[in-house]
Design a protein around this nucleic acid. Sequence first.
DNA 1: CGCCGAGTTGAACTGAATCAAGAAACGTGG
DNA 2: CCACGTTTCTTGATTCAGTTCAACTCGGCG
Lengths: 198, 198
Amino acid sequence: MTEELAKHKLIQYIKERVPISENESEVITSYFELRHLPKKSFFIQEGQECIYHGFVISGTLRVFYSDPKGLEHVLYFGFADWWVGDIASFNTHEPTHINVQALEDSWILTFSKDGIEELFLKVPILERLFRIMAQRTLSVLQKRFFLTVSANAHDRYKELIERHPGIEQLVPQHQIASYLGILPESLSRMKKQLLHKK
Amino acid sequence: MTEELAKHKLIQYIKERVPISENESEVITSYFELRHLPKKSFFIQEGQECIYHGFVISGTLRVFYSDPKGLEHVLYFGFADWWVGDIASFNTHEPTHINVQALEDSWILTFSKDGIEELFLKVPILERLFRIMAQRTLSVLQKRFFLTVSANAHDRYKELIERHPGIEQLVPQHQIASYLGILPESLSRMKKQLLHKK
DNA sequence: CGCCGAGTTGAACTGAATCAAGAAACGTGG
DNA sequence: CCACGTTTCTTGATTCAGTTCAACTCGGCG
């Protein structure tokens, strides 16, 4: 993975969403830095102030949070073209509660809090991009929330598999359980049941 | 409630967040319409295409969703200065799954999908306001999600009461149960337990 | 080869749902 | 202002989905 290739992918992504000039492209990329995340390494860890966000170029990340009992809850998996970071901590400068870890060797483009604020002034249309992104993320999270409160683990599992075929080859089973909000034991039992039914 | 008073409140709200000129203020308010919601009436009902959003001037609303079993799940309560609407349906033009109902006599300022897009072109700094709003809402929802998956009903109840003292005088108990993701019977039992412990 | 993380299986337990019935509060029309 | 019906809240008995704890298997990797 080279810096130029990564930045080209970022500009592609942006151009599909808002119009920007060649000149603006260069300004934008100058605010991003390529970073390699080896498997199992962390991009963000809870307790830190989260002054960086990332745009996933390649690989798979998990964004999760540890509860007071020590259980980990996966909020989402980050694939190529996803943004990862904690907006809450990013804005308030308080330590974050989330962790972002690479499930496999990954590459991300990062930007800082101060950098993006400066960039918004230079390329105001990015405000629009980030509004659309935030609104889209909000819709997705809302849907996830409704599913969590209104469907049982069984149906949530089926929904995930449908929406994300192939995820079971990519993500270990206990992490899928963590995404579904159940224990690995429960997921294991569920899958056995599904087999016997068919 | 008069149109002028409501619009004054909206401009107050906006000015606390982004700088706008007197001229822009007038343009903005021309895109909003005052609407009275009598108690129990609906602003949005599931199945409709949701082409309007609202800014709550006064009163209390509940934003909820009906699951396949017919149970209602409250996503949040809307008080003064909150925005209500379904971004997903707003963007995709598909029928919404949410309902917005007045719990008491309420007044809201509404704007339409087409209106806001036009307004973004005339007053681009509103993109910034809506980005910030969406990001803030996202943080709040994320926190609510984590609480839902990692804490039991007991702790979720205590958190709500702390964050929102007085809500029990404003919102009927079965709706609080619906917000917490439990049945009214369970909340009733929980409250009895809490009393006996003290 | 031995170890360690991942997954499976079993038995007992628990928080909340379900079903059912009654009591209290509310509001609407007479 | 009272009477009646409707909604809200309470209480009890039972059930169920998912947890907990513990033991065991399997596959990979140093």
